[in-house]
């Protein structure tokens, strides 16, 4: 007979694991990826593949040769980062090499430098995206026009937000377009319905809770609504606000990143509120047309503080 195992209780474990969580997040990102490929064609597919591959490769290289520890690439977290990074860039030919730099920053600086999965204070994909946005402003804001094409040279156009910042919303963009994804923008953020589909899956799997997305989108809706009521000329209407740009993607996938968001439910509500508020502030009064990634990055920084303030309600007081 074998030696008896001895440990403290409990002796059973639920079938949850980090690996399962990460692969489920990957699965939840698939609808948005399909929409991206449908609208931006082969470029979107190639950018995603390159981004994911370079994230995985960088993590493997760093673990193997710098940290000299067993590799953890199979837990799927590098793939999540890779997909989210790809979703945050326009699907253009230039991106095929730029995104590799983004992956290096995301994995090397934002994640592994802090000790790997679970120890990074900021969402790696967002750090990567912001690095690229500041370093390659032209390429990062050259948006391909949506429409399926096998060709690499797609026509370029503007995003609804970019156009609005310049003057007014293009007349041909309807709410339905934004909902389905027939608008310009970063490849993963265009279709609200694909993102919501993934988010519902994550909610059912109890990987995310409703607190952050609802607080984020709700705050953005209410705040932009107030502004719109004050002056519908200068401010975008609230429904269009939440369906364009990165709010949906950010609220459902980026802000809900477990590692960089607060743990207590009250903390998550504050976190979501802060994200929504900052997004609208940056969109309306900032230099950039879009503020989701900056908003989430700032709130990531506040997370340790929120974890300290927002404690769960104790049973026995």
């Amino acid at each position: 007979m074998n030696l008896l195992n001895i440990s403290g209780s409990p002796h059973v474990h639920s079938d949850e694991s980090t690996k399962k969580i990460m692969w489920r997040v990957n699965l939840a990102l698939v609808p948005a990826l399909i929409v991206a490929i449908t609208f931006f064609g082969v470029n979107a597919l190639l950018v995603s593949l390159i981004s994911v591959a370079s994230c995985v490769l960088f993590q493997w290289l760093i673990e193997k040769f710098i940290l000299k520890q067993p590799t953890t690439v199979w837990d799927g977290s590098a793939i999540v980062t890779g997909l989210l990074l790809a979703f945050n860039v326009p699907a253009t030919v230039d991106m095929m090499w730029i995104v590799v730099i983004g992956a290096l920053v995301a994995i090397g600086i934002a994640k592994m430098a802090f000790g790997g999965l679970g120890k990074n204070p900021f969402n790696p994909a967002i750090v990567g995206r912001i690095f690229l946005l500041i370093s390659f402003p032209v390429q990062m804001t050259t948006w391909p026009k949506p429409g399926f094409t096998m060709s690499f040279d797609a026509a370029t156009g503007a995003t609804p937000l970019g156009a609005f910042k310049e003057g007014a919303l293009p007349a041909d963009v309807t709410l339905m377009d934004a909902f389905l994804g027939h608008i310009g923008g970063s490849m993963g953020e265009i279709s609200a319905i694909a993102i919501l589909l993934g988010a519902i899956y994550l909610l059912c799997r109890k990987i995310i809770t409703w607190h952050i997305p609802v607080a984020f989108i709700g705050t953005a809706f209410v705040f932009s609504g107030i502004l719109w009521l004050v002056n519908p000329e200068t401010y975008m209407d609230p429904v269009m606000t939440i369906f364009t740009g990165g709010i949906m993607l950010g609220a459902c996938f980026m802000a809900t990143d477990m590692v960089t968001s607060p743990m207590a439910k009250s903390g998550q509500l504050i976190f979501g509120f802060g994200c929504g508020l900052l997004t609208i502030v940056i969109r309306n009064w900032g230099a950039y047309p879009e503020g989701v990634s900056f908003a989430i990055l700032i709130m990531n920084g506040v997370t340790p503080l929120l974890n300290r303030w927002c404690k769960p309600k104790r049973f026995a007081v």
Binding site: T18, I21, G115, A264, P312, R314
Partner: peptide, 21 residues
């Protein structure tokens, strides 16, 4: 199963019947 890094998911906190962390 082998232990890995805490991913700060907060599941332990939500499972705790005493409301601890």
């Amino acid at each position: 199963n082998p232990e890995s890094n805490c991913i700060r998911c907060g599941k332990c906190m939500h499972a705790c019947p005493m409301g601890l962390e």
